[in-house]
Design a protein around this nucleic acid. Structure first.
Lengths: 108, 108
DNA sequence: CTGATTGTTCGAATAATTTCGAACCAATCC
DNA sequence: GGATTGGTTCGAAATTATTCGAACAATCAG
C-alpha cells in the first residue's frame, strides 16, 4: 500500500516570483478567491465564484494559476479539496504585499 | 495658438483599478521601469531597458500599459517625454501597495 | 527650410491566456 | 460492485497581449 498519492505540486517559499504573484492576483475572479481564503481555509466546493454557473474545469484552472504562483495551497481532503492562503510564505517573501492587496481590494 | 496639444490621457486617481495596476506590474520589464522611476522622474530616453536593442514602439507600448493603469505619468518635455511614478495617487488609492512591491522587487 | 532626434500610433503577425467539454480518477455511499 | 460527488487534466477554440516595422508628428540645430 505504499502507493504514493500524486499530490499537486506547490512551489517552495524561496521560489515564489513576484511577477507571477502579481499576475495571478491581477484577475478579478482570482482576487475574489484569495479574498475568501483570507478568512481561513475553505473546501473547494464551499468556495463560491461570482458566476455560479462557471464550469468546474474553469474553476480548477483558476485555482491552478493561484497554486502555481504560490498563493494558495490545494490539498486533498476527503473526497474534495482543501484550499488555503499561503499567507506566511507570502509575508516572508514579500512583506506587506498580500496585506495591502487585500485591504485595497476590500474597498468599493 | 489656442490649438490644444493632444496630451496622452491619464486615468483619474479615483478611477485606478487594483487589478489593472497588478497586471501592469506583473511584467518584469514594466516592473523594472517602475523601479527606475521610483528614484525620481526620468526622461524617457534616459530610462533604459534590460534589452537595449528593443524597438522604440515596444518601449512605447510598455509605457502605455503603465500609463493606462495609472502607474506612471507621461508628459511632453522638450522634444522628448518626462516619465514619473504616480506615487501619491497610488498610495492614496492603495495604501502600502507600491511600497511593498518596490521593496519586494529590490531583493534578489 | 532641411535634417536629425524622440516618441506615438497603426496594423499585422505571433504568442500567451482563458474557456469549456470530454475523459478520467479517487473517495464515499448504498 | 455500482452510482454519485468533487475535482484534475487534456485538447481545441476563442480571446487577449505582445512584438515590431512603417508611417507620422513635434521639437531642436544649423
Amino acid at each position: 500500500m505504499a502507493t504514493e498519492i500524486p499530490e499537486l505540486s506547490h512551489p517552495d517559499r524561496s521560489d515564489l516570483r513576484l511577477t507571477d504573484v502579481l499576475f495571478a492576483l491581477s484577475d478579478p475572479e482570482r482576487l475574489a478567491i484569495v479574498r475568501q481564503l483570507a478568512g481561513g481555509p475553505l473546501e473547494m466546493a464551499q468556495c463560491h465564484l461570482s458566476d455560479p454557473s462557471m464550469p468546474k474545469s474553469t474553476k480548477s484552472h483558476l485555482m491552478k494559476v493561484l497554486r502555481e504562483a504560490g498563493i494558495i495551497r490545494n490539498e486533498p481532503l476527503g473526497r474534495g479539496r482543501r484550499l488555503s492562503l499561503r499567507r506566511d510564505d507570502l509575508e516572508a517573501r514579500f512583506p506587506g504585499l498580500i496585506g495591502s492587496v487585500l485591504s485595497a481590494s476590500a474597498e468599493t
